[in-house]
Design a protein around this nucleic acid. Structure first.
Lengths: 183, 183
DNA sequence: AAGATTGTTAAATATTTATTTAATAATCTT
DNA sequence: AAGATTATTAAATAAATATTTAACAATCTT
């Protein structure tokens, strides 16, 4: 009797492990270390965990868990939870993938937009100076104009990416692309 | 006279370098090596390049250029170009960021959806077996149900991601989020 | 077809990144 | 406040990744 119940428990663990493996495997896309990927995937099936529980479950060092948790917190995939009565800090995984998607990609795209648009603006100023400079020969001016136009063109993309970020952040994107609950 | 023209040329190079630096810096997000990132950013301002020109320009080894180009080809950021009369292979950077965005993220998200949905389906089957198994105790069944529902819920996200990919691939997304050419 | 040029693969090296052990700091309990 | 527990930082080690040099294969020209 207790034996077959154990078997069921084992089956459940097996089922979870399949998903844990898949999540951890695809999490390199989120630029986190293997330790952090495994940790998140493990936490996905837990209510909350302490650092010691993480260390025990993953069989890794505590500092590794500490840094992994911090990294996951940075991309909002893990939140610190308050647990009264417990001295140990507790953490919970963000289980809503939509939120994780939003935070991660918006953060990432915003960085890309800011970094590149800033450089583009500076470069375009430089190029305008070259174009206006009477000392520039015609072929040099033509070159400067060519690059200026190329950069101008690329701004359309960055503006679009900004719009995409805004649409995701505000949730407006779901008006166009709704969440389909059923199958 | 020739001196100030040189100065203009230098200014142009400076302007390009600012943008090259920014692009290369943010390209780690695309999971490419520093060499590949620098290479793409450099090629962004060139019509086309041979391996030897790349090696010369970046001051790196030819095999490094060879592998970088291959990696960039995999994510469609570089295309091989046919140049008659030249023995050397020539390559050109994809200069349309929309296309790069599409290829890279769709490829990435599709991998995530496929890997995870597959694992989820298998896991759900296992969990159903536990639930249906008469040897499973009530608390074990409750557990299995809990995880089953959690996985079912997560499928909404993966379906949405699939829809997003389809919308980007087909270009339909631009009906909702148009490209703004002007400023 | 032979020789020369170009590109790729393989092995070795260098570099970076991840992880652990050891030490320190912070926090809580009595 | 002292002692104990927990978390973080720093230094050292281990592991993975990127890059180079050297060898090989493929391709083109004559």
């Amino acid at each position: 009797m207790s034996e077959s119940a154990d078997k069921s428990r084992k089956k459940i663990e097996e089922a979870k492990d399949k998903v844990i493996g898949a999540i951890a495997e695809t999490m390199d896309l989120y630029g986190v270390t293997p330790a952090a990927a495994n940790l998140y995937a493990t936490m996905y099936f837990k209510d909350q965990m302490t650092l010691d529980e993480m260390r025990e479950e993953l069989e890794m060092s505590k500092p590794s868990m500490s840094t992994s948790v911090r990294k996951l917190q940075e991309i909002d995939m893990v939140k610190k939870t308050y647990t009264r009565g417990s001295r140990k800090h507790t953490y919970a995984a963000e289980k809503n993938f939509f939120r994780s998607f939003m935070v991660f990609y918006c953060q990432m795209w915003e960085r890309e937009v800011n970094t590149n648009l800033e450089a583009i603006e500076e470069a375009q100023e430089d190029l305008i100076n070259v174009i206006k400079d009477s000392a520039s020969t015609p072929d040099v001016v033509a070159d400067a104009k060519k690059y200026y136009d190329q950069l101008e063109e690329s701004k359309t993309y960055y503006r679009w990416l900004e719009d995409l970020v805004a649409s995701i952040r505000s949730g407006k994107i779901f008006e166009y692309l709704p969440k389909r609950e059923q199958d």
